[in-house]
Design a protein around this nucleic acid. Sequence first.
DNA 1: CCTACCGATCGGTAGG
DNA 2: CCTACCGATCGGTAGG
Lengths: 205, 205
Amino acid sequence: MAKPKAASPDDQAGTKRENRREELLRKAADLIAQKGFEGTSMRDIASAVNMLPGSLYYHFKSKEEMLLEIHQRVVDGMFERVETAIAAGHTPWEQLENASVAHFEGLIESRNLVNIISPNFPEERGALNEQIKAHRSRYEDIFRGLFDRLDLAPGVSKNVLRLQLLGALNFAPFWFREGGGLSAADVARQFTSNLRHSCEAGEGR
Amino acid sequence: MAKPKAASPDDQAGTKRENRREELLRKAADLIAQKGFEGTSMRDIASAVNMLPGSLYYHFKSKEEMLLEIHQRVVDGMFERVETAIAAGHTPWEQLENASVAHFEGLIESRNLVNIISPNFPEERGALNEQIKAHRSRYEDIFRGLFDRLDLAPGVSKNVLRLQLLGALNFAPFWFREGGGLSAADVARQFTSNLRHSCEAGEGR
DNA sequence: CCTACCGATCGGTAGG
DNA sequence: CCTACCGATCGGTAGG
């Protein structure tokens, strides 16, 4: 009972659907970055790819599943980018600087999607929230490792220093505009350097 | 045609309504801090004060007007608090440290309402957004003034340093929990000190 | 401040 | 992937 799929070429039969799915995720990510998750309706997303609202559910089980997949991908992208940047550094502080630049450039390129989704997500969405936190926490472990290898002046806490640097970087997309005097890399490097020279062991403090 | 207002005591006639309004604003602020602005319905707010949804419009013209008034009040509170803290400091760096502590304590007490409202507000809400930005910008001018008076090492930008400190403080409510090892004041002081010793003029850099 | 209601929009589904 | 539709919920209003 071999039943060939009508006219569509064999080697693209499964891929066409996946391509459409990719397009959907990209467009949805764009919209969510602009208007937030609650502010973006399934109808908005559908019409952005010339679909009817109900048809989205052929590709995704729910709006939340869509969000989760977008978040996953953005975080995975950041993960790779930061790991690569770290590999190019030779000292712990150099590695941290590289990681900061990669992190911040990633935030800007993804239109700050991770920060829009992760920390601002309303409390009550139980299950979804925990998965989002898990993605993010795995990513942040990279930075934990980086700060562990730093040699800090006495009295300076690794944890506080990490949260200070990441906080400043994570907040920066809210004011940073490309084409100003500073590039994204400049901002990340200055943030790192401003903290380095006082917290590094051996500096007069 | 003098027409006394039935039974209610004269000296509370106008105040009762205002008290109710205050209660409404406090409850609404609580809810918005928990679930965000879009996530909080007028029905949520009404039932939190044992009112019927339609009755809210006896006190407020619209949901947006309510938000604007909440934001205004929170920012005004922060303004006063920070100005007072600054007045207690004797050197520019001491004043900055005091301001950081006051700012962060204010964020925590108000459950980070300013940051939840201001930077994360979706783009398209034209008029509302501009008023919110105006409130906030007037407040942030305090910090601009503070950094202007700082004597910084060559190569350190006042603007970048200010955005770095405020960014770290503004992001911190997302991870900070009271009752941990550090108080809010500890966090703010360490953030300031971590930046100070490398960026202050005269430090080996 | 309540009663009673409006039009609009939401996420999602059945059946093809 | 479309057609056609569901129940729920939203901000807001008229009239008292």
